[in-house]
Structure formats: C-alpha cells, structure tokens
C-alpha cells in the first residue's frame, strides 16, 4: 500500500529525515517509536503533504501512485488520514459543516453521490459513538473549546467518518488520561479492517496495549535504525533507546 524509499526532507534548510525506507501492506499495524526530535512527526507531516517541509530526495509510492506529487487534499481523498498531535482550532466553522464538506469531497473523488442530510446525520451519530464523543460537540466549531482528550477523540471520530485506507496517528496518546486512552485505543481497533492499515507514532508502549502492532520501528536522527515485532516496544519501555543508539553509532 505504501512504499517509502530513501526519503529525505528538510525544514528551514535543516535536514530532518535522512533516508527513510518503510513499507506498509493492507491489514497491517505499524508503530513508529523513537526519542524526541528523531523526526517522527516530520515523517507523518511529509506523508500528509505539509508544505512546511521540503522533500529533497527519495520517493513515496501509495497504491502505486507517486504520493509526493499529489496535493494535500488529494492525498486525504485517496485515503490518507493524519491524526494530528495538536488538532487545530477553526473558529466559526462548525464540526458538522466541516465534516459534511470533507465527506462529500471524498465521495466526489471516489465518484459517489453526496449523502443526503439524513444519511449524513445518521452517520455522524453512529460514528461519534465509536469514540464515545459527546454529540453536542459536533454542533460546536472545529476543536474550539475542546479539552485535550476531546480533541483526540475528535480526531478518531473524523477518522471513523472519513474511513481512510492509511491512518497515521501522530502521538494520539499524548495528554490522554487512562479512560480517554482506552476509548481512543479501542476506537482505532474497531475501525481496523483487512483492507486498511494504521501507522501509530508514539512514545509509550501503553497505547500499543490497545492497538497491537505487527511491526515496531525505531526512528533515530531521521532514519529507521531498527525494526522488530511488538515485543520490541516492551523492551524499549523497559530499557530505553540507549542500547539501540549505541549499536547504531
């Protein structure tokens, strides 16, 4: 589904990603871990197409297409969803209106008719329950006045609405209490299907109790320096990154 080859990227002239090789097949769950500043969020942003970052080398194939040549919105419509570490507040734009536009744009891209108002509302109600999101929040402006936990739940709710093929969750667990973590974690798991895939970026093993990864990768200084199965996350939790970094350097 996703094939990343030798990806290099810079921000303000500083190289952050220095040759990432990474691939994801349908049905898989990948976890990317690594110390602060290793480039995890940058990697997620580059896949989503954030224009702050400049890709200087390498290529990314998504379902056989050149992802890097696609616009941000086309990547999204083609099924790439980024769960933001810091979801953005958009004053005055209601959740309902925002999602209505997003869902119909995606359907248009897929050649489908837009949903009727009733169908759309039913879908909202249904999907909000996946993450136990208070339905009142859907009448508010996007993320405005949401608590930290609500914002993260809202990300997963949007993921449920947009049914992505490849969901990249950037530190979705940060700032969550135990209940919210459970809700978010089980929510993501409920959305898992054989034809989609999930990439979870996290610092902590605890989220991986809910979203069980098939592969765990360690990103360090802009490169994946080690990959393993889910037991790697447990080892990292216990022993930290030093043993790996020492090996690498």
């Amino acid at each position: 589904m996703l094939e990343v080859k030798n990806l290099h990227a810079t921000v303000d002239g500083k190289e952050i990603l220095r040759g990432i090789n990474f691939s994801v097949r349908a049905g898989e769950v990948h976890a990317i871990m690594g110390p602060n500043g290793s480039g995890k969020s940058t990697f997620a942003s580059v896949l989503a197409g954030n224009e702050r970052f400049e890709v200087t080398d390498g290529e990314v194939l998504y379902e056989g297409r050149d992802l890097l040549s696609m616009s941000i919105e086309d990547r999204a419509r083609a099924g790439i969803f980024l769960g933001f570490q810091y979801p953005v507040e958009i004053p005055g734009v209601s959740m309902a209106n925002f999602l209505k536009v997003a869902v119909s744009e995606k359907r248009k891209y897929q050649g489908l008719e837009p949903l009727s108002a009733a169908e759309f509302l039913r879908m909202m109600r249904e999907r909000a329950s996946v993450v136990e999101l208070d339905s009142k929040l859907t009448s508010r402006a996007v993320n405005e006045g949401f608590s930290g936990g609500e914002k993260k739940k809202n990300e997963i709710f949007q993921m449920a609405m947009l049914e992505p093929k490849l969901a990249i969750l950037d530190e979705t667990d940060s700032g969550l209490d135990i209940d919210a973590l459970r809700i978010v974690g089980t929510g993501v798991t409920k959305l898992k299907r054989p034809d989609n895939a999930t990439v979870v970026i996290t610092h902590y093993q605890r989220l991986l109790d809910y979203i069980v990864p098939d592969y765990v990768h360690v990103l360090y200084k802009g490169q994946i320096i080690y990959s393993g199965d889910k037991s790697l996350a447990l080892k990292l939790e216990k022993e930290g990154y030093d043993w790996l970094i020492n090996q690498y350097e």
Binding site: I72, E73, F81, E105
Partner: peptide, 16 residues
C-alpha cells in the same frame, strides 16, 4: 492545512 488533510480543497478551506 488541517482542512486540506481532511480532503477539503484549498479554495474551499479558505472559504470555510
């Protein structure tokens, strides 16, 4: 950027 990541076009995101 956030809106575009959800599949909303640049023009529509500005409008919204």
């Amino acid at each position: 950027y956030y809106m575009r990541q959800r599949g909303i076009s640049l023009q529509e995101a500005r409008r919204l």
